[in-house]
Every structure is written in C-alpha cells, then in structure tokens.
Simulated scan of single mutants.
Amino acid sequence: MIHELRRYAMRPGRRDTLISLFEREFIEAQEATGMRVTGSFREVGEPDTFPWLRSFPDMGTRKAALESFYGGPVWQANRDAANATMLDSDDVLLLRPAGPEFPSRERPPVGAPIPSSLYVVTTYHVDGDDFAQLFHREAVPALADAGVVPVACLETEHAENTFPRLPVRAGVQVFVWFARFETPEEEREVDLTMLERRFTAPPERLRLRPTSRSTLR
C-alpha cells in the first residue's frame, strides 16, 4: 500500500467548513477512483489545520486515481469552495508500510457521532532505511509494557511522485507510527530514548480527534 499523510494549513476559522464539504462531497468521489480515504481529523490545539490520510494499492493506481478525481466533475464543481478555505496544502508525506497497517472498517454515514478516541501520530526524522527494525526490536516492547500498541507504522516511500500537480515533501527519511487511545484522558507518552541516536531532527507529534466519517475511530 501507498499512503499519503496530508496536513493542510487552513484560513482562520475555516477548518470545519472544509470538513463539512469534504465529508459530504469528496470521500465517495475519491474512493470511486480506487483510493481509500483512511482517516480525517481535527488536530488538538491547532484549530487551523486539517490532517487526513488516504491510501492506494500501489503507485500506478495512485497516479490513475488522482488524475481521475482531480480531473473529474466533483472536484471541478467544488474546488473553488475547498481552495478558499486553505492557505497551504503541500505538507504531505508519501509513505509505505513498515509494520502493522490500518484496520479496515466500514465508513459511518454523514451526520454520524464524532468518536471519543484520540490518535497520536509520531513522526521521526531518521538516518538510514533500517530504522523500522530498531523500532520494532527496542521500542515496541517498551510501548507494550506501558499498554501502548502501535496501530500502524509507516516509512518514507521514495518512488517518484508521478502526480506532481500535488507536491509531496522531498528529501526526507521518516518513520511514522500511530497510537490510539479510547479517550484523550487515557493518552500517555512513553520515553523511547533508545531511538534518539538515530534522529536527524526533533520528533513531530500530532494529537488527532477523528471526524464523524473517519474510518479510523
């Protein structure tokens, strides 16, 4: 699988406008082309961002699906309204599996209740392409002792971006892992100092609340 972790910078106060449009118009239209909208979120403490995930079986499908959606009638009819809510949409990581992948769940309908859960997404900038082995060997047991189980692990996909109309972050080597907590009150951080020797930049940590139609709940 190929995954995109997208984090949009929004115009002040416009995040919920985009989420409403996204959940009403864009989810099924994207999935009809062969991609999967895996998750969509509100970022805790950052009201002017919109993080979301979408997935593709492979890079060939990604190219065809993006061409179909962005050249199709739904995006053409709604792009001006969507773009009017955003300041920047280029903060995108192109990723591939490096451990467990996201569970497959049915999508809730429009108007479904917002779940109580919290997802914490940690991004490590690392040296080398073998960091996943270190994480699974040394960090996962420490996380398990604390009752924190990664629900997905991803790393940089270095394939050429064959849809350059939508940029992705180039020249990075990252490892990204997702933890889920039933409520924000259950969140806990685990000291993983055994990984720090491999970092090339400070870790990035996003605290995400699923939107009503996210399949990650």
Rank of each mutant, 00 (worst) to 15 (best):
A64Y: 02
A9H: 11
S212R: 02
L143G: 00
D91L: 14
H125K: 07
F22E: 07
E43C: 09
M35I: 08
E187L: 04
D90S: 15
R205T: 15
F22R: 01
L192I: 04
L166W: 09
V37M: 10
T162Q: 05
F178L: 10
P164H: 04
S68H: 08
D48E: 13
F181Y: 15
D58G: 01
H3T: 12
P150R: 04
G128Q: 07
T33E: 06
T17W: 05
I2A: 03
D88H: 09
R198Q: 11
P57E: 13
T85D: 03
E67N: 12
W52H: 09
L143Q: 00
A146R: 09
P109T: 12
R24T: 15
R36I: 14
S40K: 04
E101W: 06
A98L: 00
Y8T: 03
L18H: 11
T200H: 08
V110R: 00
P113Q: 11
F26V: 06
E196T: 14
E4A: 01
E182N: 12
S212W: 08
R11K: 13
E43K: 11
L216E: 08
R165A: 15
Y124K: 10
F131R: 03
R165I: 13
P150I: 13
D91G: 01
H158L: 12
I114Y: 12
H125E: 13
P150H: 03
W177F: 15
I2C: 03
T200E: 12
R217I: 00
E189D: 15
P51Q: 10
L134Y: 06
E187S: 01
R180W: 06
F135D: 09
L94D: 04
P184D: 09
G60Y: 09
E160A: 14
T33F: 02
M86Y: 02
V148I: 10
Y124W: 14
E157M: 01
E46Q: 09
P97N: 09
A132G: 05
V148L: 05
E28N: 06
F135R: 14
T193E: 07
A84M: 03
P115C: 13
T123V: 15
A82D: 11
G39A: 12
F181R: 07
A201L: 08
R213C: 07
T193G: 09
L192G: 03
Q30A: 04
E186Y: 02
P115H: 10
P100Y: 06
Q76A: 11
F50C: 04
E160P: 00
M194I: 13
N83G: 05
A84E: 12
L5M: 12
G72S: 10
R209I: 13
S68N: 11
P73T: 14
F102D: 06
K63Y: 07
A65N: 02
E23L: 05
A179L: 04
T49M: 13
W52V: 11
E106Y: 02
R24C: 01
A170W: 07
P51N: 12
S68D: 12
